[in-house]
Write a protein that binds this DNA or RNA. Structure first.
Lengths: 129, 129
DNA sequence: TTTTTGTTCTATTTGACATATAACAAAATT
DNA sequence: AATTTTGTTATATGTCAAATAGAACAAAAA
């Protein structure tokens, strides 16, 4: 699985990593129950620190996306993964900010819908594209 | 116009202020051409520092939401305010992150749509509600 | 037995955020 | 004309998150 990190981005590395992994799961490049690389190996591969990878993994566990076994992290196999209240609150805040900017800049509903569909296309298996 | 700041929020104060002002414009509590309170008076009113207000104002000018006269900041009167490329990029990144979380947590399209409409209701003039 | 795993701890560096204070020129007010 | 208000600029300080570095540990896997 490909992971690309932009060190100079405003977005923290651990946040970038979190979304790269979520992307991998949605694209089925990471399957339920599949193990993730160890914090040390992944850190070494993409050239970042071990603790940064560990932070991303632990936050993903906290969200329920990953689970933790005695040894190592794996993709959660639960069919129904529901968002927890504190994360739902953050989700709503992000949605509100996006809606506000959409209206402030007078972006049409079609324009947003098109962008959304372009994004969704990148989140499908290569097979289905 | 009401402005409420949560000092303990993860969101920086200047960012909170930016969205409060955008909200005020959408709700028509701030009209095109209308002047905003001076950085000192607003800072004093809501109990934050002058430079924090100034930072929010300047960023809003940079986005085209406000303009600056010889003296003071005013709401931009341009009918067509179009988003600039760098801001559009950030917008797309935020939209992507939201779409990813929507799918990862298996949220239905109806659920998102409902949340969106609840938000949009808060962005209308009180008259229209 | 050796290696690998995540965990924990201490330490350091960097930058953003926010505040505080002061001084300035230009504009508005009195 | 004098005073006040405006945004601007500069310096300084404190706090915190992010990221790195290195070391040590017990438990599990090889």
């Amino acid at each position: 699985m490909y992971i690309r990190i932009r060190p100079d981005s405003e977005t923290p590395i651990y946040t970038q990593l979190i979304y790269q992994i979520k992307k991998g799961i949605l694209r089925k490049e990471l399957l339920p129950g599949e193990g993730l690389p160890s914090v040390r190996s992944l850190a070494g591969d993409i050239g970042i620190n071990m603790h940064t990878v560990n932070k991303a993994y632990k936050l993903l566990v906290e969200e329920g996306v990953l689970t933790q076994q005695k040894k190592g992290f794996i993709v959660n196999s639960d069919t129904k993964l529901e968002i927890q209240p504190p994360h739902l609150l953050l989700y709503k805040e992000r949605l509100e900010a996006l809606v506000i900017d959409t209206q402030i800049f007078g972006m049409s509903e079609e324009m947003v819908e098109q962008m959304k569909q372009e994004i969704e296309a990148t989140l499908k298996k290569d097979d289905e594209k």
